[in-house]
Design a protein around this nucleic acid. Structure first.
Length: 568
RNA sequence: GGCGGUAUAGCUCAGUUGGUUAGAGCAGAGGAAUCAUAAUCCUUGUGUCCGGGGUUCGAGUCCCUGUACCGCCA
């Protein structure tokens, strides 16, 4: 049985994600996981929350909660939303887990042994009132260039000049406002990525068929300017994974934690470890090529902003460890989804967020639209007009109405049972040939993770059903030759479970409703003709409720209005 | 300022290694049908493929250049 490890970029713990985040990693990863499971693969689909770092601490402080408690609550919120969108993770982990602590410390120890970690002293601003070192952007002051009073330590928003925190006039903490700041010397660990440049370069050259978007980004970071830079992997914070060299203490690093970018990708492995601990499973056979993972294909999904971490930083950790860890085989990256002429923005609350989306419509509507318009090749535009038009046409008119017209026609002429009699002729043979061809194309696109093309092909298969009905016209045939009409409608009824199975990766709830109404179970069609004879004469079914209600103009206008400004 | 990406029908987008009259869906127009969520099906595109140069027998597709938008970096 083929085995596939799938990871989605892990969302940051701080707040609810918008649809642009969803469509850039979790949703397409879920589509692929569901598809492969249906095709009989053994799948391990992993996601988690990314919980460390200053933004989490500040968000917790703002909420008036201890950071651990805040993260636990937000993890649950994100988990519930993931369930709401039917994201079928085998495990939704947390980067703050004990497993990730252990693994992150383990990797740091291995990298140190390999001579890939260096201690460096640097000067950083310390706030006595806050009792912590301040990252550059959390220091505010007057810009020496333009006099703007709320310039940040990394850049002045007013004149855009790049700044150093020590440039600021009257610097103060952006967290507490305290001006009791001082520059302190502090030691940090650096991962010497520069020493790994050639290995990473070779590793990337050895990958076949990666999207241009992916390799071009990686190559740019490897070769531009001075090439791949060493990066700090520690911070002076409380919330995080304590710096240790494997299981041992790290002298001089007391009170420090690993920088979030270092521990976050390791959570992919740790989450699988969490899954194993919870289920008595074996996580190493997914991740260690010396322990059974040599036949695993590993596919990652992420937005383009995450590509450097997955092509360089994380592989540097894995390769640098000198241990036989599984590295990514195929990396699928996405562009951005824009909202009505601008960007989705978490900070400005612009666009539609996951919780709001589910308040407005069931998950399948969003899944279908987002996946059929996923920004694979370029940034893509979401507008309510387009969304309404596409969803009404594809889901309500083409697929939903097909199910409706077939089941209702049968009920009125033959009852809620698959009718007997008649035989298929040329029209039916032509349909089967058409479906077989379409199925092959659909599988090809899904195998290649060409999501838009797969969606278009699937829609084409739905249309083929309507075309057949139009040509066969059982409502006319029935008057002259009821047996022939029975054979036609028997075929049409069989199309419903066929569509349900093929569509399940995109619209799992509707697929389940369709199978439920027809009394069938999902089974991937290996042979189209045989599959379309699954429902035998006499098999009972029920007429399902309307699968997809249409979005009215009033709804659309109301939603466009509601989501035009900032988050409510 | 440096680097990268994008610019194709009213809209959202496809166009593989350069090769015959540039495609799909939606919207629009006309028609058929009436089983169905007024749902379906058929027919229908006079597009300076952003502008300008160039390479080639031949360029939406390669090169140079200009413009616009987007992103990354400094």
């Amino acid at each position: 049985m083929p085995r596939t490890l799938i990871t989605s970029a892990i969302p940051y713990i701080n707040g609810i994600k918008h649809l642009g985040n969803l469509v850039g990693s979790q949703l397409p990863a879920d589509l692929y996981a569901r598809y492969l499971r249906l095709r009989g693969h053994e799948v391990m689909f992993i996601c988690a929350t990314d919980e460390h770092g200053t933004p989490a601490e500040l968000a917790a402080a703002k909420a008036g909660k201890p950071v651990a408690e805040y993260c636990a609550e937000m993890w649950q919120v994100q988990k519930d939303l993931a369930d709401g969108f039917r994201l079928s993770f085998d495990h939704f982990g947390r980067s703050s887990s004990p497993q990730n602590h252990r693994l992150t410390q383990h990797f740091a120890g291995r990298l140190a042994e390999a001579g890939l970690i260096e201690e460096r002293s640097e000067k950083q601003v310390y706030s006595k009132a806050d009792g912590r070192f301040l990252p550059d952007r959390y220091i505010e002051g007057t810009c020496p260039n333009c006099g703007y009073e709320r310039a940040r330590g990394d850049q002045c928003e007013n004149c855009t000049k790049q700044l150093d925190p020590t440039d600021l006039i009257d610097p103060r903490s952006a967290i507490s406002g305290s001006t009791d700041l001082e520059v302190r010397e502090t030691k940090h660990l650096y991962l010497r990525q520069s020493l790994l440049r050639d290995r990473l370069d070779q590793w990337i050259d050895g990958q076949e068929g990666w999207p241009i978007l992916t390799t071009s980004i990686a190559k740019k970071w490897l070769h531009d300017g001075d090439g791949l830079q060493d990066r700090g992997i520690t911070r002076d914070l409380d919330w995080g994974i304590p710096v240790r060299k494997g299981a041992e203490p790290w002298p001089g690093m007391e009170g420090k934690v690993f920088y979030v970018w270092f521990d976050a990708p390791i959570e992919y492995i740790a989450a699988t470890n969490e899954w194993a601990d919870a289920t008595d499973g074996d996580w190493e056979r997914w991740w260690r090529t010396d322990k059974g993972a040599e036949d695993v294909r590993y596919v990652q999904f992420m937005g383009k902003d995450n590509v450097p971490f997955h092509t360089l930083s994380f592989p540097a950790t894995l390769l640098g460890s000198g241990e036989p860890w599984k590295t990514v085989d195929y990396l699928k990256s996405f562009n951005y989804l824009n909202y009505d002429g601008g960007q989705f923005s978490t900070s400005q609350g612009r666009g539609v967020f996951m919780d709001q989306a589910l308040e407005v419509l069931p998950a399948d509507y969003w899944r279908w639209w987002l996946l059929s318009h996923v920004p694979e090749n370029q940034d893509t535009e979401f507008t309510w007009e387009i969304f309404q038009a596409n969803v009404n046409k594809d889901l309500a008119d083409v697929l939903g109405n097909f199910v409706s017209r077939v089941t209702k026609f049968c009920r009125s002429k033959f009852g809620e049972v698959v009718p007997d009699g008649g035989a298929w002729g040329e029209t039916e043979a032509a349909l089967i040939a058409r479906l077989a061809k379409g199925l092959e194309a659909y599988q090809g696109h899904m195998d290649a993770i060409e999501i838009r093309k797969a969606a278009a092909e699937l829609r084409g298969l739905w249309v083929a059903g309507n075309e057949y009905l139009q040509e066969a016209a059982p409502w006319s045939v029935f008057k002259e030759d009821p047996d022939k009409a029975a054979a036609q409608i028997r075929l049409a009824l069989n199309l419903i479970p066929f569509y349900a199975t093929l569509s399940a990766p995109f619209i799992p709830d509707a697929a389940e409703t369709m199978h439920g109404a027809m009394g069938t179970e999902p089974a991937w069609p290996e042979d189209v003709e045989a599959t379309l004879a699954t429902l035998a004469p006499g098999h009972a079914f029920t007429v399902p409720d309307v699968l997809f209600a249409k979005i009215s103009d009033d709804d659309r206008a109301a939603w466009a209005e509601r989501f035009a400004g900032t988050r409510d």
